[in-house]
Design a protein around this nucleic acid. Structure first.
Length: 807
RNA sequence: GGGCAAGUGGCGGAAUGGCAUACGCACAGGACUUAAAAUCCUGGGUCCUUUACGGAUGUGAGGGUUCGACUCCCUCCUUGCCCACCA
């Protein structure tokens, strides 16, 4: 087996060397050519690339190389998202410094990426942990601050005790920390927030412009923004007349409200329970609920806990007296923290009412099965229907009633149409060391003072003790904290929290346009040339987090006059995960396939080819050792053609020429549509065809195959290209074009169906007339046999394709 | 609970409403070889039929639209993913 394999090791090393020496992939702008910015999500430098990276970056590399050969000016950069907690954790564990650890990781990762043969312009590499980069984080922060878009407030925030830091809402998944899966608790802290909510409308509206984004991502962002239209209704507490606003999207059910529910954290509770016999019970309940972790609250499902407050409220539409309850299924941080409960038409309210024996009142009649006795209800009816028990609105369709009731309530001043959003402001301060220092100074006299622009960067000090405990490590660095107030020059101290790393990655795609620019975060001219990113590629896990923040930053920078577009990423591809035996590859499962070992065994070209061939880019793929052998075999088969070309003395063969043009056509179209797996299969077909015609002149076909393969497997293609006698680097050649004339057939095979079933095939002239065709078909022995004495009822003719006889 | 996606040979997967299973893997047979490996070629959904020829059947299940459905519509089942006490 050994002697038959092509020498991938030498070939790959040799070409990587040449590319690096010649700076082959440096961006060199050719005038009058269109631009194309191809970007893959830059990695966190963990030290080793994994199969997810390989897949992500290979897809991007195909696109970048393809566009370059098609004559575009292509920007295809790479860098490292190098701030973040893992560096700190690793530092504690290995008794090293985060900077040392991170830079070592970057070194290894860069090496591995180069081994894959990706066509990055390495002169444009960026790392976010360098002050040349993060000073512009600080600059953008100051701009946000100037415009009132960043502020500090004391609030209950998400806190991960394991990571010893706060978390943004986007980083809390099912009540747990997205990184360490530890239980997230609420802690009252003074923290920095970015007013992303000021952009919520634009973030929502512009989603419609993103025609080339996966609909799933659009939907996830829509859900996250969570715009909901409804009515705020003002209930009154009976004894003291406290106003209790509730928010509902179902104002049509207002006449069916039979109790009110307040969130346990609701500020009015203390006042309405004062002196009531229930006071003690309520306080105990609240205490108990508070200590219950959110994930436990969620896992209890629909079983709702709650207590009666002892007070009553007046429903403003009919002056009905209804009890006020307190229950943990109502959340303080959504809507008004209070709801009107309509058990007949809301399933959660229904279950709660059944459990606590509360009144149920039907106000919308289900047209399918009208029930008027609430005790007959088995579940809440949440569908559409006709209003009943709703005073002057009886008889209306509930959809109509919704409008009318809202208007009527507004007239009477007992309610107001309102919009509620789910998205909250973005908490960005972290009590960790390895991040961008927040450029703020606290002065006893002047209060919160931003660091003046000309004093940037506020450098992250190197000397620090990281214990993982006791809050921000910078708190203990005296030389960092102690400073002077920029305004009054008296002694002052610096903010010791650092920025969440999602801040860093929210604008890095702009930095790549002018990575060494020193007068601003990016050169406006360069950015307006390259941006927006034409093709962005990355994992679906960033559907909300990174992609939402980046969209927000872009809109903010547009308002600053820094960029001239609203959306950063024109086209988005979310690639599927790489699995092993149907499971995610992970350390804990011990099923990780290391790209490095595959490169050693088969070479990077084989790995690139296989990872694209095994499945379409956007779906998950299962890793298979057998599959990779197949890809390796293909490359050997390709390489072997060199021998045949040298000996080649055959003549032109039109079949092979046709196969060649067909391959160009199919591969080009498939790459354009991201059908990379079938693009490869068409190259395989061309190869099969070449092997069928080894005695003919195969030179042109082999050249074409090498050109087509070059975007997938650049090393072997470069080597073969050179051995075929070409001096120029294959990546600088033009993408081959096909001639439609060659693909035109003179004869065509018609499919003959009888009653929709395939019965025969005939070969006829392309330009055959329908009458003639019909004659030929009807005299076909197989067709005759089927028709026999039955009569022909219909003759369906699809030109150039098929005929269906209905008998 | 809501939403989205998907379900096709032994496996990964392919098919603008028009030859279902391209391409690859695995398998079987042949050529080459002393032999094996490698390589090249050939074969194949399933069932019936002695083989060929041929026929029936076949894309999760059931129905519909159509001359014709993997593809479009309806109902259901299964799996995966995302969101979620969101009022």
């Amino acid at each position: 087996m050994k002697q038959a394999n092509y020498p991938f090791k030498q070939i790959e090393a040799r070409w990587q060397n040449i590319w690096s020496k010649n700076n082959t992939f440096k961006v060199r702008i050719v005038k009058n050519r269109p631009k194309y910015y191809c970007l893959e999500m830059f990695p966190y430098p963990s030290g080793k690339i994994h199969m997810g990276h390989v897949r992500n970056y290979t897809i991007g590399d195909i696109v970048a190389r393809f566009k370059k050969m098609q004559g575009f000016n292509v920007l295809h950069p790479m860098g490292f998202d190098s701030f973040g907690q893992p560096a700190e954790n690793a530092a504690i564990k290995n008794k090293t410094h985060p900077k040392v650890w991170t830079e070592r990781c970057i070194h290894w990762m860069r090496k591995e990426l180069k081994q894959m043969g990706f066509s990055y312009d390495w002169e444009r590499e960026i790392s976010t942990h360098l002050d040349a980069y993060y000073r512009w984080n600080q600059w953008i922060f100051l701009k946000l601050f100037e415009r009132g878009l960043v502020y500090k407030k004391k609030e209950d925030v998400n806190w991960c005790a394991d990571c010893q830091t706060t978390l943004a809402n986007e980083e809390v998944i099912e009540g747990k920390c997205w990184r360490c899966k530890n239980e997230v608790i609420q802690k009252e802290l003074e923290q920095w927030f970015i007013r992303i909510t000021a952009y919520k409308e634009r973030l929502l509206e512009d989603l419609d412009k993103l025609k080339d984004w996966p609909s799933q991502v659009i939907l996830m962002q829509k859900n996250w923004l969570g715009r909901s239209e409804g009515v705020e209704i003002y209930f009154r507490e009976k004894e003291n007349g406290f106003r209790i606003p509730v928010f509902t999207t179902r104002v049509d059910t207002i006449f069916g409200a039979t109790y009110l529910v307040l969130a346990p954290e609701h500020p009015l509770i203390n006042q309405i329970i004062k002196g009531k016999p229930q006071e003690k019970e309520v306080l105990e309940f609240i205490e108990r609920v508070k200590n219950k972790p959110k994930s436990v609250r969620l896992s209890e499902g629909l079983k709702k806990e709650g207590v009666f407050s002892g007070s009553f409220a007046i429903n403003p539409v009919n002056e009905e007296e209804i009890p006020i309850w307190i229950a943990d299924y109502v959340l303080m941080d959504y809507g008004t923290g209070a709801i009107m409960a309509v058990p007949a038409h809301d399933q959660r309210d229904f279950l709660f009412a059944k459990e606590h024996n509360l009144v149920i009142k039907i106000v919308i009649q289900n047209p399918e099965e009208p029930i008027s006795d609430p005790s007959q209800l088995k579940e809440a009816y949440e569908g559409e229907g006709i209003q009943i028990n709703s005073s002057q609105f009886d008889g209306l369709n509930n959809r109509e009633a919704k409008e009318k009731i809202a208007l009527w309530m507004e007239e009477k001043g007992i309610g107001k149409r309102t919009l509620y959003w789910r998205i909250k402001d973005w908490l960005i301060s972290r009590q960790r060391y390895w991040g961008t220092p927040i450029p703020i100074i606290y002065c006893d006299r002047c209060g919160i003072v931003p660091v003046p622009e000309k004093e940037l960067p506020v450098k992250l000090p190197f000397k620090v003790t990281i214990s993982g405990k006791g809050g921000s490590p910078l708190n203990y660095v005296k030389s960092f904290i102690e400073t002077r107030c920029p305004k009054c020059k008296s002694k002052a101290c610096r903010e010791t929290d650092t920025m969440a790393t999602f801040f860093d990655s929210s604008w890095y795609f702009l930095r790549f346009c002018s990575p060494h620019y020193q007068k601003g975060p990016f050169n406006k001219k360069e950015a307006s040339f390259w941006m927006p990113v034409d093709q962005y590629i990355g994992g679906i896990e960033h559907a909300v987090l990174h992609l939402l923040y980046s969209r927000f930053f872009t809109k903010f920078l547009k308002d600053l006059g820094m960029v001239n577009f609203e959306e950063p990423f024109q086209r988005l591809l979310t690639q599927g995960m790489v699995l092993k035996d149907g499971e995610v590859m992970s350390k804990s499962r011990g099923n990780i396939v290391d790209p490095d070992s595959i490169i050693k065994k088969y070479g990077a070209d084989t790995l690139r080819l296989y990872i694209l061939f095994a499945a379409p880019p956007e779906v998950e793929m299962d890793w298979s050792e057998r599959g990779i052998e197949g890809a390796f075999r293909f490359l050997n088969r390709l390489y072997r053609l060199l021998d045949y070309v040298e000996k080649n003395k055959g003549e032109f063969n039109s079949e092979l020429e046709k196969a060649r043009h067909r391959a160009i056509k199919e591969v080009t179209e498939d790459i354009e549509n991201f059908k990379l797996n079938t693009a490869i299969s068409h190259i395989m077909e061309l190869l099969n065809s070449i092997y069928q015609h080894l005695d003919a002149d195969i030179t042109e076909a082999v050249k074409t195959a090498v050109l087509l393969v070059s975007v997938f497997c650049p090393h072997i293609a470069s080597e073969m290209w050179q051995r075929l006698g070409f001096k120029r680097d294959i990546s600088k050649e033009s993408w081959p074009k096909f001639n439609p004339e060659v693909l035109k057939e003179e004869k065509i095979t018609y499919i003959i169906q009888i009653n929709g079933k395939l019965r025969s095939k005939i070969e006829v002239d392309v330009n055959i007339k329908e009458e003639e065709l019909k004659q030929i078909i009807l005299s076909d022995p197989k067709v005759k046999k089927w028709i026999q004495n039955k009569s022909l009822q219909k003759f369906v003719h699809i030109p150039q394709r098929l005929v269906n006889l209905v008998i």
